[in-house]
Write a protein that binds this DNA or RNA. Structure first.
Lengths: 343, 343
DNA sequence: ATGAAAGCGCTAACAG
DNA sequence: CTGTTAGCGCTTTCAT
């Protein structure tokens, strides 16, 4: 079926292709009469201008890619899934397609996906911390990018321009979480986090420390576990904590998935949650509501991170200012996993 | 930064653009000498042919869209999320972008997204049952499509060609689930399903019936609930069942999410699961492993559905044969939500 | 206000 | 085997 073109519309309306183009793009330079005539034909023939020719002409793909580490695809990670949802929702307003892809590192070499190598994308949204070597590779290509949930401020320290980011304030989130434990009478509070992303570890640890210091609490070294990268490894972290002579009454986990793994371990070891040990997380992924006991956590507005990310990348693409943003990070969601032991 | 073109490569290599084009596309018609020379220049300059010009030339977008009802986006529905994952994984092999979009029905009118209206997609994968009016609208456009998890065989009965689909065999899944309950000594088995998608209801009910008949069991009318569309409504279905004078010892839910809602209701009403009432679902979404008790269910291989869907739509796009497929649907996953009451 | 013509980067038909 | 040329559908000068 031969798709109708602007030329044929012009012929039918008895005008030039230029006129039709002007009408489509609401430009000056055609008489009201012609405009109406052309509009009528477009309406009647159900004409849609061919996007591919505009792509070629403007050297623009109308694609925005989401680039994820292969370790944490939004399709495997509930946190990034929510961010993706926000981006997707917003993308429709701007007429861009969202394309999911990933970057891999193979013995020190950056493997970019075709869509980026071909510059078949107008902008890139990175999820999570992104290594400098990757960003350097991207910088060669002059494709605008932003980072959603970037933990590392050191990113791209070689360059003069720091990258634009949408972030949570994980120091504040950690502080809020631990403070809640303290308010509920806990004085022996363990910490499970990931040092895989150094700055995430640093930030959450700072918040943990600040809350402890404020209440003049001390900790056992074995309570500080930083080898969690997922549910299973968090389980192991918890097992180590439970081997301590002094056992904590509460555990602060820096993500909900860590908390889920740690709770599982505590239960498997015969502890009641929260009666014997309390747990608190960060993120408020939807799973938090389904486990038992329901997880008390700090809510990060992931949908908002997504919509903000979309706005930022659009600004960048269009050459406008795009300032880094931080979403609200002290929103405590009280459920069932923290026991008040003051009572 | 002016992107390098095929013309410039030609100039540098001292040949014609045609020669370069031939080399890029591995075509006959250039001497080995020229080929090597051109390859060297391409390598050295890091040249990537412009996809947009090919898009225009071939009238091909290299996009495949996933179209979902606005009621069940893969980003809200764990079942479709897995299918999307399979599609995405496979899409890289074929060099297509996957674009998520949706179709809405507004007082009887089909609202197609821009990407489809503009025919800016080479193929469409529909998720879940799709109304005839939608398919008719698509048929006008001559974009090839397939349906993943299509429940309705009546789809498009007006047309001479039935659409290509990837499906689960829900009758078999239901039969397998209910048979498992029967094997565990259950004789009073309730049913929670959705009549929102009529054929899904019909199929699962048939499987339920077949298993019951095989064991010569009878049911109370109030045990048959078909108004579930999500977790919350399944909760209500269960509440109705629990109002019966005769209470079932087991409940067969046609999706895991229904089971999750129903279990919640049973617990809230003071029943122990599975001690007082057993539950079984269909799907094996990842949540099934996180709730308590862990859900016994029938596993549908969603990832496989996704990869098959991708293969089918590619076949269709390339004009090859594409035959509907059914994935394995009798894979029982035994966890903790079914009690053996024979013992 | 209008239309002719050039050109975005590539491929394919054709001529040499 | 090689290069010239036309053209995919659109936008944008630039004459008229």
């Amino acid at each position: 079926m031969p798709k109708i073109t602007i030329k044929e519309i012009a012929k039918i309306a008895g005008v030039s292709p230029t006129a039709v183009s002007f009408v489509i793009n609401n430009k000056e330079g055609v008489s009201e009469e012609t405009r109406l005539k052309v509009k009528e034909v477009i309406e009647r023939t159900n004409f849609q201008p061919n996007l591919n020719s505009r792509r070629l002409l403007f050297n623009k793909s109308f694609n925005i890619s989401i680039v994820i580490r292969n370790t944490s695809s939004p399709f495997d990670d509930l946190f990034y899934l929510e961010i993706a949802k926000g981006l997707l929702k917003k993308s429709k307003e701007y007429g861009y397609n969202i394309v999911f892809t990933d970057v891999t590192l193979e013995n020190g070499n950056v493997l970019l996906p075709d869509i980026i190598k071909n510059e078949d994308t107008d902008g890139i949204v990175f999820f999570q911390d992104t290594e400098d070597i990757v960003l350097n590779e991207i910088n060669k290509l002059t494709i605008p990018f932003i980072i959603a949930d970037a933990h590392t401020d050191s990113v791209n320290k070689g360059s003069n321009l720091p990258p634009t980011t949408v972030n949570a304030d994980y120091e504040l989130a950690a502080f809020t979480a631990v403070s809640h434990l303290i308010e509920n009478g806990h004085r022996d509070i363990a910490y499970i986090s990931s040092s895989y992303v150094p700055n995430f570890y640093l930030k959450t640890f700072e918040g943990y420390k600040r809350a402890l210091e404020g209440a003049q609490l001390s900790v056992q070294p074995s309570w500080i576990q930083s080898n969690a990268i997922n549910e299973a490894s968090a389980y192991n972290c918890m097992a180590t904590i439970l081997k301590s002579n002094l056992k904590p009454t509460a555990v602060f986990c820096t993500t909900d998935m860590f908390a889920i793994g740690a709770i599982k371990c505590a239960k498997d070891s015969g502890f009641k949650v929260p009666d014997d040990i309390s747990f608190i997380g960060i993120d408020d992924i939807f799973l938090a509501n389904y486990i038992s006991p329901k997880l008390t956590t700090i809510r990060i507005d992931k949908l908002k991170m997504g919509t903000l990310a979309m706005e930022l990348i659009i600004n960048k693409i269009e050459g406008n200012e795009a300032n880094s943003m931080v979403v609200e990070s002290d929103n405590l969601v009280i459920r069932e996993s923290v026991k008040n032991i003051k009572l």
